[in-house]
Simulated scan of single mutants.
Amino acid sequence: MSGVLDLVREDLRDFAGYRSARGERLRGEIWLNANEPAWASAADGDGACRRYPEPQPPALVDALASLYGCDGSQLLVGRGSDEAIDLLVRTLCSPDRDAVLVTPPVFGMYAVSARLQGAPLVEVPLAEGDDGFAVDFDAVAEAALMRGVRVVFLCSPSNPTGGAIARDDVLRLAARLRGRTLVVVDEAYVEFSDASSMVALVASTSNLAVLRTLSKAHALAAARIGALIADPALIAVLRRCQAPYPVPAPCAELALSALSTASLAETATRVVSVRHERERLRDALATLPDVVRVYPSQGNFLLARFRDADAAFGALLAAGIVVRDQRGAPQLADALRITVGTPAQNDRLLSVLRTPEVAA
């Protein structure tokens, strides 16, 4: 056994997992193998929900593979990116031995999954410069090699800082860590970015994995449809470690509708609108007297520092506008993260921030 499977926990490499009734691939007319009710719920008009769903719905796998430009064998569908993050940590990291590396300030679920697994957490903070926050790739590589890191999580565009990372930097990191560490790039916001996805690199880089989601650009956050693209051998192991029925049938149907030609065209139009509004909002925020700095962003949000973040947050909340308070995050004691809304919503936010009590 070699390659990416060497990164899997020894006790899980041959783990068969749970063989669900729907995973047996049997065919018949009368289904009496899964203890499903013989009648439909009164709340379910066509009765489809009385049956367990496909563990990996083939039509959805094919549609996502087509969207992301990969093979279906490289793709795992799960309950948002969160499930894939948790699966990777549990499958690759033995408790108290194999570490997880993160680059704060960054999405908090990487650290949460490490904590729940008992995996040591290694932090290599983002470095702030004139162009915003950036990953110190040399420091990441050195820490990963010295601290027994099994999984490196990178976020591009990064949440909450908004910066994207270069594919050449990722490739060099993966090459330095080959055989020792899986490099995971979380692309939850890549549709809003000037940078292209790194999915195409997975085929030639076995220790690289990419996270994608329908929650952001495709506006399906409540449906909880995420995908992991990785080496087929690793995907096969993760499927055996995944819960038996991770994708509810109504969510899969909603996702397929969102991936139709017409829906994808509408999504593309809305992404263009968000990108335009993001720059308009950034320019406007930068003129406000209480705003110290607005960072460039490749996501559907902006990170801004305030002279009095507490006053700004309170004024917005009093006006019924909820933004993300980042003051508890490393290096962001004076910062708020603002999602790009509709033009009218953005104008209302700016109006509140221009009030004398905030600007004073």
Rank of each mutant, 00 (worst) to 15 (best):
M1F: 12
D6K: 15
V8Y: 05
D14E: 15
G17F: 08
Y18L: 14
A21N: 00
R22Y: 03
G23K: 10
L26Y: 00
G28V: 05
E29T: 10
I30Q: 03
L32C: 00
N35T: 08
E36H: 02
P53H: 08
E54S: 11
L64F: 12
D71M: 04
R79W: 08
R79A: 15
S81D: 05
D86N: 13
L92V: 03
T103Y: 08
T103A: 11
V106P: 00
F107G: 03
S113H: 12
A114M: 03
V149F: 11
V149P: 07
V149M: 06
D169C: 11
V170M: 11
V170L: 09
L173G: 05
A175F: 01
L177F: 09
L177D: 05
F192R: 01
S196M: 10
S196L: 14
S196D: 13
S197C: 07
L201G: 00
V202I: 13
S204Q: 15
T205A: 05
N207A: 11
L220C: 06
L220S: 12
A221T: 07
R224K: 14
L228A: 11
L234F: 15
V247M: 14
V247I: 15
P248Q: 02
P248D: 01
A249P: 09
P250D: 02
C251N: 15
L256Q: 03
T261P: 00
R278H: 07
R282A: 15
A286N: 03
A286P: 00
V292Q: 13
R293E: 12
F301L: 04
L302K: 02
A311F: 05
A311C: 12
A312V: 01
L316H: 04
Q326G: 04
R327L: 07
V340I: 14
P343C: 05
D347A: 15
D347I: 02
